[in-house]
């Protein structure tokens, strides 16, 4: 089943490679332009749970890798009809200097907090996101703190250790 859906994606969209890994697992790599339509396609093919949007900082390649994790938990049965079971990992890359990608909220509404988090932790700009305001952080950081070139030790020395002790 997963092989079939992988082939369907490869045929329907340009610049996509799909690779199965195990019985219930499929890895799809796509361009950032086609990600949203692939997400819509998968949602209609029983992968209706966006479990997570994550990000990997590929600093050597100068790119940020976005990871969308889609799940489908049930196989076909009488009540819910034609379904399949599995996990699809959808990966795409955006450039590190100008990271921008369309928001997935129109497809999966629960993408909103994930994208807000990625915006503040990695500095990715989600085009069309209704409120990209800070989610967890209290302060502004010059470099988003989850990027690999963010020097935590240097940050602690400059921002926290510089605060004087009140008493001995």
């Amino acid at each position: 089943m997963l092989n079939e859906i992988g082939k369907q994606i490869e045929q329907s969209f340009a610049g996509v490679s799909a690779e199965t890994g195990g019985e219930y697992r499929l890895k799809v790599e796509a361009d950032k332009e086609s990600v949203l339509s692939i997400l819509g396609f998968l949602k209609n093919h029983s992968y209706d749970h966006l479990a997570l949007i994550s990000c990997v900082d590929r600093i050597e390649a100068g790119q940020l890798e976005l990871v969308y994790l889609l799940n489908s938990y049930m196989e076909s049965d009488d009540r819910y009809g034609e379904r399949e079971k599995g996990t699809i990992i959808l990966k795409t890359t955006v450039s590190r200097e100008d990271p921008e990608i369309g928001t997935a909220i129109h497809v999966f509404q629960n993408a909103e907090p994930y994208e807000r988090e990625l915006h503040e932790m990695f500095g990715i700009d989600f085009d069309g996101h209704p409120r990209q305001i800070p989610l967890f952080l209290e302060k502004d950081y010059a470099i988003p703190p989850f990027r690999k070139d963010f020097d935590t030790r240097d940050y602690v020395e400059k921002e926290l250790e510089s605060i004087p002790a009140v008493e001995d």
């Binding site: 967890f136 602690v156 926290l160 009140v166």
Partner: peptide, 16 residues
């Protein structure tokens, strides 16, 4: 969390 970007190291700088 001694080198965390989001954790303070010495509490006694802010409250006794």
């Amino acid at each position: 969390y001694w080198d965390s970007y989001n954790t303070i190291n010495h509490l006694d700088k802010f409250i006794p």
